[in-house]
Design a protein around this nucleic acid. Structure first.
Lengths: 218, 218
DNA sequence: ACACGATCTTTACATCGTCAAGATTTGGCC
DNA sequence: GGCCAAATCTTGACGATGTAAAGATCGTGT
């Protein structure tokens, strides 16, 4: 195994046969394809075409289509965390409930703005039989943000309880379900569909806060 | 178009060439395949094999694979509604909050017991560009159960407010997100994964009730 | 009775994921 | 500096899939 860092400068000049950093290029191509043509057009060969390499080239960096898509999904998780951080910064960190509101806003916002990427992040074929380590790590990073905010809210007394896991699962489930049901168009043909998604999201966000303040467990 | 009811008796004896009721048989075969081999094995040809017909036979009853899968998904919705009704009956209908608890229990229960069917019901390729009418109708039927329970709870004063849509969206989003995150194994590797799903579901169910009792909107 | 339409099969084609074999480049070692 | 093994990329192939066209078979109305 050679060091990628030292070779990158010499390789970036010759893109003829050896690409240089095809692994990263494939992940970016995957994001581009899924954004442009949706998740059903996200084939291994389409990603290779987008990266201008042959249809078998990805196999030298990913052992299967699932592993490539898992890497793309992990990149999506990182972008979502980044987007949520943008919602979080600028908010007074002294109020943990505002932090929770920002996370909920950012989560739904990312799903609405990048629907195909968001859906890819939760494709079941990427999670079984065993999840790609990179995807798992990205998920854990994203969840840690929520867990830490909940712990802060509990320590400051904004919400009651010592165990952050049930409140975190509750909050994550609600925003995740809202995003998924909206993206799947389940609300569209129901009376709920008449409500603007952003307004609905903020209303539901407040319901989450209400549900968190009460502490029925224990 | 001929009447299926009158011909069925004469046709059921001769299954040689004309099947008799292939449409229903294909839907049942789809449910069987997805339960046995999961959602990634649910191909049009696998469904045809299960029904013991040629791989092109489904095209005389469904215009595409998506339409066939949408019909299977609609059947799944009907079974979920039936399963939730079983949770609901036996509960005193005098308490609307108990009805909401039963719906939440039944929703998560169905997802855990029939994970592949549940996932199929929310596949994005079945919802776009336009949802199959049968799937749409089954979805609407399922949602009506929740809406009516919420209206009952509002009229009895168990929860406050006149508009049932935001509470319904909130409750549905939470149980749906919980089911999806659990099925996708997102909780599995986090601290939340140590909590049994049934216990977590009942805890979150109580949080939903708490969030519904408070009425931050309006 | 018979013709027509509905239903099912067969055949064919483009695309997909994956593997094997060959071509090309790179880095380490003398 | 030059060679060799390994890493990287391409080409070709195979089976499986979704879908369309054409042919075979059955049911039904006139």
């Amino acid at each position: 195994m050679y060091d990628k860092g030292t070779m990158s400068t010499s390789k970036r000049r010759k893109l003829a046969y050896h690409h240089g950093d095809l692994e990263r290029a494939l992940i970016d191509s995957g994001l581009a394809v899924v954004k442009r043509s949706g998740i059903e057009a996200l084939s291994l060969r389409a990603v290779a075409r987008q990266a201008k390499v042959s249809h078998s080239a990805p196999y030298h960096h990913f052992s299967s289509k699932a592993e490539l898509l898992a890497a793309v999904a992990a990149a999506g998780f990182d972008r979502m965390v980044e987007g949520i951080r943008q919602q979080t910064t600028g908010i007074g960190l002294d109020d943990p409930l505002e932090g929770l509101r920002a996370i909920g806003r950012g989560y739904v916002m990312f799903a609405v703005c990048h629907p195909s990427v968001f859906r890819l992040m939760f494709r079941p074929e990427l999670t079984r039989p065993s999840k790609h380590p990179r995807l798992l790590a990205a998920e854990t990073r994203a969840f840690r943000t929520l867990l830490e905010t909940i712990v802060g809210a509990q320590q400051s007394g904004a919400i009651v309880g010592q165990d952050p896991r049930p409140p975190a699962a509750f909050a994550w489930s609600t925003v995740h379900g809202l995003a998924m049901l909206h993206l799947d168009g389940v609300f569209a043909e129901t009376p709920v569909g008449q409500i603007d998604i952003q307004i609905l999201a903020s209303q539901i966000n407040e319901s989450i806060i209400s549900g968190l303040k009460a502490h029925p467990w224990q």
